[in-house]
Amino acid sequence: MPAITFIHPDGKSERVETSGGESVMQAATRHGLDGILAECGGNAMCATCHVYVDESWLARLAAMAGDEDALLDGTAAERRPNSRLSCQIDITPELDGLVVRLPERQV
């Protein structure tokens, strides 16, 4: 199963083994990872599962939809060109090794 590396703001990294058919947010919350809040439970309404995707991986993700783009304007931490909502990134085998950085805060 694909694994994802989350890098916390303090530099500490955490590797999470994912299961099939879940989003990056779901993998994170299932592992009790601090730094992903996901208040709306993955319904693309709250922008509290914000991540910065490692640049080398960015182009390999499916393009974001308009609602995600709009929500990213309201993130608590600064929006950057590599900002995504982790609930909108479905994990596929090609994403094995994906690296994402966690923002300073989600609310």
Binding site: E39, C40, G41, G42, N43, M45
Partner: peptide, 14 residues
């Protein structure tokens, strides 16, 4: 970890 509760509903009508 409260994420996923349905107190606000879930899905398109959340």
């Amino acid at each position: 970890r409260t994420s996923g509760h349905v107190g606000f509903g879930s899905g398109i009508h959340m």
